[in-house]
Design a protein around this nucleic acid. Sequence first.
DNA 1: ACCTGAACACCGTTCAAGT
DNA 2: ACCTGAACACCGTTCAAGT
Lengths: 216, 216
Amino acid sequence: VAKRGSAQAKSPLSRERIADAAMVLIDRHGLAALSIRKLAEELGCEAMSLYHHFPSKGHLLDALVDQCIAGADLPAGGLPWVEQLRRAAHGFRRMALRHPKFAPLLVVHRLNTPIGVAYLDKIIGIFRKAGFDDKSAGTLFRDVSYFLMGAVLDESSGYANGPSAAEPVSDAAIARDCPNLAAVAPFFKPVHFDATFEAGLEILLQGFDSIRKTVR
Amino acid sequence: VAKRGSAQAKSPLSRERIADAAMVLIDRHGLAALSIRKLAEELGCEAMSLYHHFPSKGHLLDALVDQCIAGADLPAGGLPWVEQLRRAAHGFRRMALRHPKFAPLLVVHRLNTPIGVAYLDKIIGIFRKAGFDDKSAGTLFRDVSYFLMGAVLDESSGYANGPSAAEPVSDAAIARDCPNLAAVAPFFKPVHFDATFEAGLEILLQGFDSIRKTVR
DNA sequence: ACCTGAACACCGTTCAAGT
DNA sequence: ACCTGAACACCGTTCAAGT
C-alpha cells in the first residue's frame, strides 16, 4: 500500500535498497540534496531507521563509490600494454560519468575499500607487467590519474555546466576584455569533451611509451 | 579591549578583515569548519553582521578564490612559450597549495570573476601567441588544466593525507592482496610529489611541442 | 549605514524506548 | 533485530528591529 507521495513501504530496508534510492536522489537532484532525512522520506521510513544499515552517512557514500567502481570496465590481459591503459582510462571516465552529479565525490574519494584497492591494483599491474620499474609505475600511474580526475571533474561540473561564481562575469565582458578566452571558449563545450580527452590521453600514453624505452 | 576567547572587537568589519579571518579558520581547521556563525564568533560580532559585507557564504568563498588567484605568479612575456607554460603551471600549483585545506574548493571552482577570467585569458594567450590555432589552444589548455586539477587535489587531500573510507583497508591486507599497489605505494608519498608533478608536466609539454609543429 | 536578536527551515547523529 | 520519536548541537538565511 502506498504512503504519501513517492514514499512506498514496499519491502524491508536493506543496504542495497537504501544505496539505490540514494543514487536515484543524487542523479535527480544533485549531491547536495542527499540527506539522511530526505532519503528516509523517499524510502517511506524514519531517518533513524537507516542507521541500522549504515553506521553513518560516510559509510553510505563509501558504498555508493564501491558500487560505481565495481561497474568500471577493465581491459583484457592479452592486449598490448598501451591499449590496456587506453581502455582502462576510457573505462574509468565512462564509469565516473555514468552518474555525473556523483562524479565530483567519486573522483576525490580515496579508494580504500577492498573493491577500491583491487581496482587500483589491477591498473598499476598494467604498468608493472609492461616492464616499468616500481618508481616509474607509481609516478606515471599518478600522472594519468591526475589527468583523469581533472577530466571527469570538468566534464561533470565544469564550465559547460554554467558559472559557479555568485556574480559571474557576462559573456559580453569576456568578449571585450578577454580575447584569448573568448576565442577558445567554444572548444570548452560538451561537443568537444571526447576530442579533448583523447588528445590529452594520447599525449600521456605517447610519453609513457618513450619513457618505457629508457627504463627497460 | 578583548572580548571572550579569540574574539576581538578591534575594528569595524570589512570585506578584507572577514575574508582574512575566514582563510585563517580554513587553514587551521579545514574547509568544513568554516561556518558563518563560527566566523562571526572569531571576529567578535554576530553572524548576521557578516551579511552586510557579503550577500551570502558563496560570495565570501568567491572572494577567497579571487584572493588566491590574484596571488598566482605568471611568467614574463619574453620567455619561450614552453618555458612560459612550465612556469604558469608551477605558479598555479604553488598558489593552490599555499592553502592546502582550501585547495579542493579552489581547484573545482569555475573562475568566473573578473580576476579569474583575466588569469585564464593570460594563460590561454601563451598558447595562441605560440602559434596554436584556437581549437588546439583550447584543447591543450584544458588538457594541462585537467592535470593541474588532479595534481593539486591529490597533493592537498589525496592518499598521503590518510584514508578517506569510513572503514579503510589495512596496510597488511594491501600487502597480502594487492602486490602492485603495495610495490608502488611508497612513491605516492609527499617526498615524491615534486618528481611526479615534473614528470607528468614535462610529458604534456613535450607533447604540446610536437603538436605545434604540425598545426603551424 | 551598520549591526543585532529571534526565528525558520534545515542538517547528522545520540539515546532511550518501542515491537 | 529492526524501527521509531524526541532531543541535541549544529547549519545558512530572512526579517523586523535597533542605533
